[in-house]
């Protein structure tokens, strides 16, 4: 399945007020890769993600998802193959019950009721939250909300998963569990995050963005060991790669 490619070429974006947000970003992600997009606040990560799900269509440069170059005409095809997990699960869980929410996408695809049910319970069991099926979203904990939000995207069987800060607001255990679950997925994954420890666990490849430009693109370990680069981009080595504060050993 070589068609699950995400290719961004010379992408530029300027806010309506004239501030440049993305200035000539290019990368190519192939099937099954797990890629982190890291960068400081305001580096342009979110704007970049908005281009990957077709919320913004490129004015300069191009974005290609699978076989489709992203244009107004192909937006719905692109959205079908890219599953987007939002930073705040409250924005994403808008239906009255967990079941309704996870069924929202498949029903919009026009699937028959039986198929929808199967997809919903599959997606929920994959995230270990099948028991929450009938609960209203506002009665879920942060970790549960996150799991349901991901299930809601999985139920559409996307080829590519795009996630914005998947671990914010999670307690250590929920975070650990989420990392294990994400690791088990075969999807192409693109994760925008500040949580560099998560990146160490999940992503072989990292793209560093700073001030709307790609500063580095390569194997995660290599990038995280380049202290100068990280500092320049307002980032910091993940804790696990830093020296021990007690014994001082690397």
């Amino acid at each position: 399945m070589s068609h699950h490619i995400v290719a961004v070429k010379d992408l530029e974006y300027t806010y309506p007020d004239g501030t440049p947000a993305i200035q000539g970003v290019s990368f190519r992600i192939t099937h099954g890769e797990s890629v982190a997009i890291v960068g400081a606040n305001g580096a342009g990560k979110s704007t970049l993600l908005m281009h990957l799900n077709g919320y913004l269509t490129p004015r300069e440069g191009s974005v290609q998802v699978g076989d489709f170059p992203l244009t107004k005409a192909t937006v719905s095809d692109v959205r079908r193959s890219v599953g987007m997990v939002f930073q705040d699960p409250d924005d994403q869980l808008f239906m009255p019950t967990v079941f309704d929410d996870v069924a929202f996408g498949p029903l919009n695809l026009g699937l028959p009721a039986e198929d929808v049910k199967v997809r919903v319970s599959d997606a929920l069991s994959r995230m270990d939250v099948l028991h929450l099926k009938d609960r209203p979203p506002y009665k879920l904990s942060g970790g549960e909300k996150r799991a349901v939000a991901i299930a809601a995207v999985l139920s559409m069987s996307p080829d590519v998963l795009v996630m914005d800060e998947p671990t914010t607001g999670l307690d250590p255990r929920a975070r650990r569990q989420l990392i294990a679950q994400l690791d088990s997925f075969q999807h192409t994954k693109i994760i925008a995050t500040h949580d560099l420890d998560l990146v160490l666990d999940l992503c072989q490849r990292t793209i560093v963005i700073h001030a709307g430009k790609v500063m580095a693109d390569g194997p995660t370990l290599e990038i995280f060991n380049d202290g100068k680069l990280l500092e320049r981009c307002h980032l910091e080595k993940p804790l696990r790669l830093q020296g021990c504060p007690v014994c001082g050993r690397d």
């Binding site: 919320y55 705040d88 079941f99 309704d100 069924a103 029903l107 919009n108």
Partner: peptide, 22 residues
Amino acid sequence: DRAQRIHLAMQCRGFTGEIHQM
């Protein structure tokens, strides 16, 4: 802003103006 994000989240999952519920 939140309304805009919710709308985006809906669109990402195939929303075209109709909400279907089982």
